[in-house]
């Protein structure tokens, strides 16, 4: 068993878990943060993407023990209280989700994407950057639109903060 302490959405969380526990199960089963999903077992679908120390990772392929000491942000921690993150708002505005299952991973991937590329995203880049996220409902059309829209708005937010 491993004693694991991870700061999740700003709150330090300590649990004793089996060493084989994956970060996604630490979040879902031990912390009750069920917004992060598991859609495959080969690290391809991206439903489990969270941010660890500021970057997107597939939480189904990270051991909780290996994440000991890390800071993790999940879909539950993205909004500022009742105020949605611009990416969340854009997914709703552009109908970038249907069943909602891939959505948390999509949004976390998209936020990471914009953080790395700033406002310099075009459709081709967005589609390429979504390499690790499967959606079976939307055909990606509206996801791409949402990300492109949010990237403009997030760029504005970042500039305003500086």
């Amino acid at each position: 068993m491993a004693n694991v302490t991870i700061t999740v959405n700003g709150k330090s969380e300590s649990r004793e878990v089996e060493d084989r526990t994956l970060l996604v199960h630490f979040l879902r089963d031990h912390l009750g943060l069920t917004g992060t999903h598991v859609g495959c077992d080969t690290s391809q679908c991206g439903a489990c993407v969270v941010h660890m120390d500021g970057i997107a990772v597939k939480s189904c392929t990270v051991l909780a023990a290996a994440a000991d000491g890390a800071e993790v942000v999940t879909i539950e921690g993205l909004a500022d209280g009742d105020e949605l993150h611009p990416m969340q708002a854009a997914f709703r505005e552009h109908h970038g989700l249907q069943c909602g299952f891939c959505t948390p991973g999509m949004i976390m991937t998209a936020v990471d994407m914009v953080q790395r590329h700033g406002g310099n995203l075009d459709e081709k880049t967005v589609r390429h950057e979504l390499e690790g996220n499967y959606c079976r409902c939307t055909g990606y059309h509206n996801i791409v639109k949402a990300i492109l829209d949010a990237s403009g708005k997030m760029g504005g937010v970042q500039q305003a903060a500086e």
Binding site: S43, G46, V49, I55, A56, V57, K58, T61, V62, T109, D112, M113, R116, E129, E131, G132, N133
Partner: peptide, 9 residues
């Protein structure tokens, strides 16, 4: 290699 999240790790 892989995808952005895979490359991060």
């Amino acid at each position: 290699i892989g995808d952005p999240a895979v490359r991060h790790v």
